[in-house]
Design a protein around this nucleic acid. Sequence first.
DNA 1: CAAACTGTATTATTGATGTAATACACTTCT
DNA 2: AGAAGTGTATTACATCAATAATACAGTTTG
Lengths: 126, 126
Amino acid sequence: MISFEHFQMTDGSPIYLQILLYIKRGIIAGIICDGDELPSRRVLSALLGVNPNTVQKAYKMLEDEGLISSRTGAKSYVVVTEEKLNEIRTELLEADAKEAVEKLKLMGVSQEEAHGLIDKYWNGGE
Amino acid sequence: MISFEHFQMTDGSPIYLQILLYIKRGIIAGIICDGDELPSRRVLSALLGVNPNTVQKAYKMLEDEGLISSRTGAKSYVVVTEEKLNEIRTELLEADAKEAVEKLKLMGVSQEEAHGLIDKYWNGGE
DNA sequence: CAAACTGTATTATTGATGTAATACACTTCT
DNA sequence: AGAAGTGTATTACATCAATAATACAGTTTG
């Protein structure tokens, strides 16, 4: 069963997207694996304190991408092939790294300073 | 006059926040300086293809933070002291670096791989 | 002075996010 | 078989971001 203990609703971005990305990143990290069961819509919505429809929206998008399997009455579970894993891995890594680089460059941070910042906050800096 | 040539509306985040952050990051980078004139609400809205009210919202928040000065009829301009610069610099650097680190760690990226990703995308990777 | 531009304020409307309350069909487990 | 849990669908509603169309007051500039 997939755990959501490290999930935290942070920014103001749509919750269904946060759930979707959390699961995708978990798959990429290898924490969430092929065949893993997902908490039901009702259970997860209660756990996160959001509406079941919000969870449903995230699950529906994951199913449309072929990353989970759902059928009425049964529990949903993760479906990951080596190919799909590589797809989303490059997709997300590229997006996140590019975003961070772009922001830091806008602030006049040098490449060396960027490395320093990564190190500083890697183990809960400050 | 502040330039918006490098501004690009990317993600789905509120446009007024993107404008606000663009200006803050410009101040941090030293591209936007104390006394610099801002494009008027109408001019910038036309340039970005958004509504004047959207720009007004961003400018209003900047004024509330004391980073720009506005008075009816006159052009708005940037107000930056050394103190405020340090404030927003640490604020934004910390936020962006922490966000990037957190995402990469969620995906199981190692500290060394993170450095590699920074380098890869620093000069328009791919 | 007068025109043009500035900041500011108001009101109405649209679309998306998220809430809320159901309802129904199916699977699983006892 | 039956109860509990599951996925799915529908409808109504609230809120916020953003659009749109104005209006007014102050300044800058020719």
